[in-house]
């Protein structure tokens, strides 16, 4: 076994002198290629972060910002609209995330069991398609399907079956809106979510199934003792990665929201939108930045907690 170390790390380990410079020189080609990526990240990801400071200023876009310390955060804590939006964001995001993940896993398992490759590919294409529809189009289509009038497909079927006497205004009824929201999200994103799980499933060594079959394992036991353990890591990784985005809910809610359901649908980013464009006065960008910063921090905390939990449960995290 060749244990001879050739890289700069080995040389550095020996001499213990300026390892960074040595490393830079040795891998200069790679660093050079990395430069555009680094520049892009600095310009578009890090420099905009300086805008965070406006959370501590009063700023209406005309006069210079005035430092107000934590005043925006104090106001935020007192506003019922903020807490309502905060609660809705967590509820809608987390339920949506769990539903989407588990329906994607279920669908992946079903697709994995399909024997006909052609049928499997056709099914996959069909379930991927909704992902490519914009939320505006999706909302328009479902507004029509769920219309309370005779034009609404769902209501007209329910009325004809005698289940309902009068159509339900699904998208303007507080008791129905969230169900519809979750349903539409599952319809739109489940197919796309299966890609990563199907990739994992196709990587499972078939010999494991053959060995299990020889040991007398049926479909259920193969699923329980081979497939699911193999999928666990992917499920946790997907959950943690998506958790980072839970506070960013906006477009899907905004296009389906209306005045009647604002109490159950207003999320932090639609709240920011209202504060900016609906106040009848020049908005204080400081306040909306403070709300946005809070959302980002909460998202960050979620990821760290989940990563920690992953460490405890699996012995390793992903971050």
């Amino acid at each position: 076994m060749n244990t001879k170390k050739k890289g700069p790390a080995a040389k550095a380990a020996g001499s213990n002198k300026r390892p960074l410079l040595v490393s830079l020189r040795y891998y200069k080609g790679f660093y050079l290629m990395f430069l555009p990526v680094l520049a892009f990240a600095i310009v578009f990801n890090y420099l905009p972060m300086f805008g965070i400071r406006y959370a501590f200023y009063s700023y209406k876009g005309i006069k210079e910002p005035v430092f107000v310390g934590l005043a925006h955060f104090e106001k935020m804590m007192k506003m019922s609209g903020f807490w309502n939006a905060f609660g809705n964001t967590i509820t809608l995001s987390v339920v949506k995330l769990l539903l989407n993940t588990f329906t994607a896993v279920a669908l992946s398992l079903m697709l994995n069991e399909m024997k006909s490759a052609t049928f499997k590919k056709i099914t996959q294409t069909i379930v991927y398609l909704p992902h490519f529809m914009s939320w505006v189009v999706t909302a328009s289509v479902f507004t029509l399907i769920l219309s309370p009038t005779s034009a609404g497909l769902v209501n007209s079927i329910l009325i004809k079956l005698g289940i309902l006497k009068e159509g339900i205004y699904f998208l303007a009824d507080k008791s129905w809106w969230r169900t519809m929201f979750y349903g539409i999200n599952v319809w739109k994103d489940t197919g796309w979510g299966t890609i990563i799980f199907i990739a994992t499933l196709s990587g499972i060594n078939p010999e494991l199934y053959e060995a299990a079959a020889m040991d007398g394992a049926g479909r259920w036991n193969k699923l329980r003792f081979i497939t699911m353990p193999a999928l666990n890591n992917t499920i946790i990784t997907v959950l943690i990665l998506n958790l980072a985005k839970v506070m960013n809910l906006f477009e899907s809610v905004f296009v389906m929201q209306n005045d009647a359901v604002i109490q159950v649908s207003d999320v932090l980013h639609t709240y920011i939108y209202t504060q900016t464009f609906n106040s009848g006065a020049l908005p204080d960008y400081g306040y909306t930045t403070a709300v946005g910063l809070t959302a980002s921090l909460v998202g960050c905390v979620f990821v760290m907690v989940c990563n920690k939990a992953s460490h405890k449960v699996r012995g390793r995290g992903i971050v």
Partner: peptide, 23 residues
């Protein structure tokens, strides 16, 4: 004061009108 509260107030008013008329 309007910049501070009117966004929330407008949202609340709209929601109440919808509650009365539709619900």
């Amino acid at each position: 004061v309007m910049a501070t509260y009117n966004g929330d107030l407008t949202t609340l008013k709209n929601s109440i009108v919808a509650d009365v008329v539709v619900q």
